[in-house]
Structures are given as structure tokens and as C-alpha cells.
Design a protein around this nucleic acid. Structure first.
Lengths: 148, 148
DNA sequence: TGCAAATACTTTGCATGCAAATTAAAATAA
DNA sequence: TTATTTTAATTTGCATGCAAAGTATTTGCA
């Protein structure tokens, strides 16, 4: 079977592609209720954990592309979720700071992880942890070769 | 720790997001050599496995969104990789058929899975299989709730 | 037979992901 | 100090992913 490895069913990449799209779709509705897209939600989670950080730090934490980040933050400013201010110490940097609205949204978002979790009827929590571990290995292995 | 579940490091979704983006990035360079994007490559793999199928079948096999598929196929026609022809039996349907160029590309693509595989230094093949199984569970669980 | 409902696609609009080029400011070397 | 390099963001262009609306065709039911 010389072409066996080109079959879709054997491809880890395709599983990841489908799983990632599925989960983004699953978040769509719960997030629409609080008027957030998925990447915007990721940015909010980063800021709920630590506020008043630079754009580079948000990029680092969220792994969202820097040029996409500019656009995402712009939209979040329009929604009054956060403010972008210059870092006085280094004029190149911009600091991101949640507004009151942005901080308060955390309470409304609190139940979202549970809403998603209860959709998983086959995957138990031990398996989810194991899965996360394997994904970390994937991310780790691929991040190495990127830097070359 | 009332907000613990909102931390990024605990989120399966964020791991999947990062892993999926990482792997798409990893394919970018090898695929650029044969002038394909990642979704285009997925379509090609589907057609290498079974040619002359309807657009709906390509959508089913690849799990690529139908409206995106229209655009993707249009670009692939421009590259002379395939042709879109009407199904005489059902005028609503379109059949996709590889050109000679499209068929021949299979040989050039043959080594791509290996190129990617050798980037995985931490994840062994048993773990990759286990990971694929878990991803199948995720996809399965989430596909159920979508249909409601 | 005739028409509503279901199918198969396409089109449109919006939000990314990412590479490449650009701009501005700070750090470093000469 | 001045020129070069590096760093932090933004801008631009292209390719999706997806929801919603629109267009043919075909089915299926009265």
C-alpha cells in the first residue's frame, strides 16, 4: 500500500483540524451570549488572569498571532472591554487594561467552561488530562522546528 | 479558587487551538513547495483516495465548510488541479475530477507525511494513536450537540 | 399534476491566521 | 554621538471558517 500514509483517516493533522474547528463551533453560541468571539474570549481569559500587560505579553500568553491581535484588540476597544495605553517607560510598548465592563464580564463567563464540559459524554476527565498532555507534546515538538 | 476554571492553562480548547495552529504552520512550508495550502491539500488527499465524487462528498470527507469549499475548489480549478462538471443525473450536483496534473501531484506529496512526522521527537507513534483516539472522542461528542 | 419542502451549491459579510513589508522607538555598536 | 540593529506594533494581502441569505433542482405529498 504505497499511498496508505496519504489517507485522511490516518492523519493526525486532520483530526486536530476537525477537533479544533468543532470546539470553536461549540463555543460560538455560549460566547455569542456575552458578545465575544473565541479569540476575544482567549484574550479576556488572559487579562482576567493578569491585567495591565503589554500586547507582546498578551500575544505570548494567548499564542494568537501578533498582526491578528492588533485587529482583535481594536474590536475589543470598540466594545469598551479594554483600553490600550502607551507604556511611559518604553514608547514602543502598549499596555492593555480592562475596563470595568471587561472586568465584570468575568462573572458572566464563569459558567462557560461548564457549559462546554457537559457536552463531553464520551471523554472523561482523566482522558481529557491525558489528551492535554499529548497536545502539549505536539505543541512543544512543533515549536522547536519553527525557530530554525 | 472560584475563577480557576477560567485560566488558560486548564483549557482543553486552548491546547487544541494552539496545536491545530502549530500543525497548520508546520505544513505550510512543505506544502508551499508543491503550491498547496493546507485545506487544498486535504481536498487533494480526499480525491487521491477517491476521485470523481460530488462536492457534498468532498465536504463530508474533509469536514471543510461547504461555503469555503466553493472558494477552495475555484482556486484549485485555476491551478488546473481538478475540474468541476455537472452531474447529468442530478443537475444540482457537481462532480469533482482530478486532472492529470492533480493526479501526478500525488507522487510529489508522498513524502510530506514523513517530513511532518520527523518533527515529532517527544510524541511516539503509540501516543500519536492514542491522541487520535481521544480527538475522535472530542469530535464525536461535539458533533452530537451540533445537530440539535 | 402542482406546489411546498428538501437538496446542493453559491454568494456575501465578518473575523481571524499568517507572511511580508512598514513604522516608530530603544538598545547597541562604532 | 551617530549609525546599525533589534524590538514592538501596525498595515496589507491572501486564504479560510462560518452564519445567513439566495438560487437552482429535485422530491414528495396533496
Amino acid at each position: 500500500m504505497p499511498f496508505e500514509q496519504l489517507k485522511l483517516k490516518h492523519q493526525l493533522c486532520h483530526r486536530l483540524y476537525m477537533a479544533s474547528n468543532s470546539i470553536a463551533r461549540a463555543y460560538r453560541e455560549p460566547l455569542a451570549k456575552i458578545n465575544l468571539t473565541y479569540p476575544q474570549y482567549v484574550v479576556m481569559m488572559a487579562l482576567w488572569e493578569q491585567d495591565k500587560i503589554t500586547i507582546a505579553e498578551v500575544v505570548e500568553t494567548t499564542a494568537i498571532d501578533g498582526s491578528a491581535m492588533t485587529q482583535i484588540l481594536k474590536k475589543m476597544v470598540e466594545k469598551s472591554l479594554l483600553a490600550v495605553v502607551k507604556d511611559e517607560k518604553d514608547q514602543r510598548k502598549r499596555l492593555i487594561q480592562l475596563t470595568k465592563t471587561g472586568q465584570d464580564l468575568k462573572l458572566k463567563a464563569l459558567n462557560i467552561p461548564n457549559e462546554i464540559r457537559c457536552k463531553f459524554t464520551s471523554l472523561n476527565s482523566d482522558q481529557a488530562l491525558q489528551l492535554m498532555h499529548y497536545l502539549d507534546l505536539v505543541i512543544h515538538d512543533l515549536s522547536k522546528t519553527e525557530k530554525e
